[in-house]
Amino acid sequence: MLELLKQPWPWYTSGIAIAFTMVLLLFFGKSFGVSSNLKTMCTIAGAGKRVKFFDFDWKAQKWNLLFLLGSVFGGVIASNFLTNDEPLKLSAATIKDINELGIVFDGGLNPSQIFGLEFLSSFKGFLTLLLGGVLVGFGSRYAGGCTSGHAISGLSNLQIPSLLAVIGFFAGGLIMTHFLLPYIF
């Protein structure tokens, strides 16, 4: 059983598990959406004193912070107990494309060229990762949700606004991937 769990999980397992997570939270009386935690953290850091947007009772969001904390533990468990040595089965076309950007596929989950210490400690590297985060944080709050809140919760509830948000996610992602990345890496 453990051997089976150590292999990469097929996409349908993950799809079922994500839907299950959403349903579980609904039955706990909550709604699945991760990016609200970023707002909550700003509020805890005291942003509510300066900006009205952050002036809310964050304690009602404590459950979501616990969920997020759990997901960090989930990452710890997956990397320490549920890995095998097989490289990720990335498509050959993607390996070739990112090679042209100068990024070598190293078989892990994330390229060490972007998430390794060398890139991180360079001025350009630090700024790239920070700015990428700024875009995600700003965009998810502007759109009122991220992949979990819109693509999963929203689309499951057949919300047209969420469909628009997902179209936006893809528009931005395609522009970055096909037009901007060559200038960044």
């Binding site: 790239t128 990762l129 700015l131 990428g132 985060g133 700024v134 875009l135 995600v136 944080g137 700003f138 965009g139 998810s140 709050r141 502007y142 759109a143 009122g144 991220c146 992949t147 819109h150 606004p161 969420s162 628009l164 948000a165 997902v166 179209i167 936006g168 996610f169 893809f170 528009a171 931005g172 992602g173 395609l174 522009i175 970055m176 991937t177 901007l180 990345l181 960044i184």
Partner: peptide, 16 residues
Amino acid sequence: KYIFGGSIFGLGWALT
């Protein structure tokens, strides 16, 4: 908000 915010999010998603 969905198209503008979503697109900004997408830029960051593909980058990071």
